[in-house]
Design a protein around this nucleic acid. Structure first.
Lengths: 225, 225
DNA sequence: AACTTTCTTTATAAAATCTTTATATCTCTT
DNA sequence: AAGAGATATAAAGATTTTATAAAGAAAGTT
């Protein structure tokens, strides 16, 4: 099997060295960048399987790098931050960070997080399109088809449907959905969800008064099938 | 395979002897204690796979021993009691006893209870989905299937069934169930429980007038199998 | 700036679920 | 076999949760 490729973006050479030794002795291939811009171009040229990104960088903040990367880069990005960076961590997760680690970290924890992130990535993101009965969801091009006809969804509607589709058959709680789609802090806005489930149903269900795809689990959440 | 280790805590030497012979001839290893305090320290030093604990002990009551053990000891504890100890049994179950046997007991029953308690202990801890005959309970996705068909349960019904399934074979007292599902303060609302056991039976039992899964233990509670 | 689209709120109707009450059935003891 | 206590079932009432429409706010486009 080919080795997984990991890109480290961090300005401190000692940390880079430490990470490199740890990762290479665990059979990962490593490339490094000391600045945000360098990191972005390395990421573009090598498309690593995972990125370790420091929040505190000299040229542009880790947050900005994260946002830029997420415009086109799908693989896991784990943020590295100093302790007490609570707020930064939350914004990072909001912007699509996969996970985070606070420095100083134990090698075991780092490796565990990396393993789990990569594993999750190959099982979920790697499926490029999902087909559920008359629905076809292309996760790369963000195109939804129903009986081969193109559906026009808004961004939020699409995100919601994609989340459902990735968790087909599983009950998703209101809280979980709200956190995933709207972000932390929206977990009580259950009414948003009701409205959007309503519009989604009108678009994807053959008979929206008697929904087949999006099932209500009263008191808990919704289930997609 | 290593033999299972069983600790007997009972003040009557004849009973200890009887139990020892029975258990050892069935391939269990046995250690004994004649008093509660001795039992607790033996349990701490040997961490047996199961404890047989007499309710009537000279130094401290079996109930006290049970409570002390349950602060740190996770494995099954089967209580031994004389007949007509109904109340004591219920308090014992409330305090985390796994099962009970009334003396005098048949050897076959004793062994069956021990087998089932040990089996349950090694299988149900940390399992994500539980299969009981025609029922399949997925604790992660909150999905219940009967003969592979999806069952629609309300939130409370699901919680109740999940609680039962996690304690398969074990008698759960009304109090305990009410505390777990509805919370502290609802422990006297036995009628709630009756109504919900009724609706659950209608959904999961093949013949709900003659329930197989949810067994009534009159005066005590229910047992799921 | 005017217009379109999308998102957020608010209000209300409808549905589902939970609680309570009443009554029937069962079980155990005397 | 009668009576007490415990359990089961049905059904009405109360409450909570969900669905839907529609108005107001925000964002994006031309």
């Amino acid at each position: 099997m080919n080795k997984w490729l990991i890109l480290i973006i961090d300005d401190e050479p000692q940390i880079r060295k430490l990470l490199q030794i740890n990762l290479e002795s665990n059979d990962y291939k490593v490339i490094q960048a000391a600045t945000g811009n360098e990191g972005i171009s390395l990421c573009a040229s090598h498309t690593p399987d995972l990125v370790l990104l420091d929040i505190g960088l000299p040229d542009k903040s880790g947050q900005e790098v994260l946002i830029e990367l997420r415009e086109w880069y799908q693989n896991p990005i784990i943020m590295l931050s100093v302790l007490d960076g609570e707020k930064e961590i939350i914004t990072a997760l909001d912007h699509g960070a996969t996970d985070y680690l606070t420095k100083p970290f134990r090698a075991g924890e780092l490796l565990a997080r990396i393993r789990s992130a990569i594993k999750r990535n190959i099982t979920t993101v790697n499926t490029k399109s999902i087909i559920c009965g008359d629905l076809e969801i292309d996760l790369v091009s963000r195109i939804i088809k129903k009986n081969n006809e193109l559906l026009k969804l808004t961004s939020t509607e699409y995100n919601l449907l994609a989340l459902f589709a990735k968790n087909e058959g599983k009950v998703l709680t209101h809280q979980y959905i709200l956190r995933e789609i709207w972000g932390i802090g929206y977990q009580t806005e259950t009414q948003y969800l009701r409205v959007f489930v309503g519009t989604l149903r009108k678009k994807i269900e053959s008979d929206y008064t008697n929904p087949f795809h999006i099932i209500t689990e009263s008191g808990v959440g919704y289930r997609f099938q």
